[in-house]
Amino acid sequence: MMDILFDTQLASFFTSAAFIIIGLFAAIFLDNIIKKIIGIAFIEEGANLFLVTLGYKPGGIVPIFLPGMNSEWFAANSAYALPHALVLTSVVIGASTLAVMLAIAMVLYKKHGTLSTSKILGDEK
């Protein structure tokens, strides 16, 4: 039991799952646009954390091959770099999405005088 608690990778997976579940709850059930957007940020970061965790290797080294390193030792001990590279792109996409959503929220607040999604989308009908 204690092993599981101190397993960094497993803990990180659980954290990402928690992020996604909390984010889904906020995005689906909360009425305030800003809270929804924060929820969406949680989902995105949960997915990113999941990817980063995939590349983690317990006791591993930074995946930079230096002169003099034994290639087999390097392959066996380095962290997996691909997920980390992917996350960088994903973070940029997430930031762009959030920026657009916040901009829309600002316009809608000016137009409707409220941040309540049900009122804003109710007005649309």
Partner: peptide, 24 residues
Amino acid sequence: NYETALKYMILGSIGGPLLLLGIG
């Protein structure tokens, strides 16, 4: 148009990361 865009973005921001998670 802003209201529809917001709705689309909220749904998209749920669908997109879940797709990413599947890829993960």
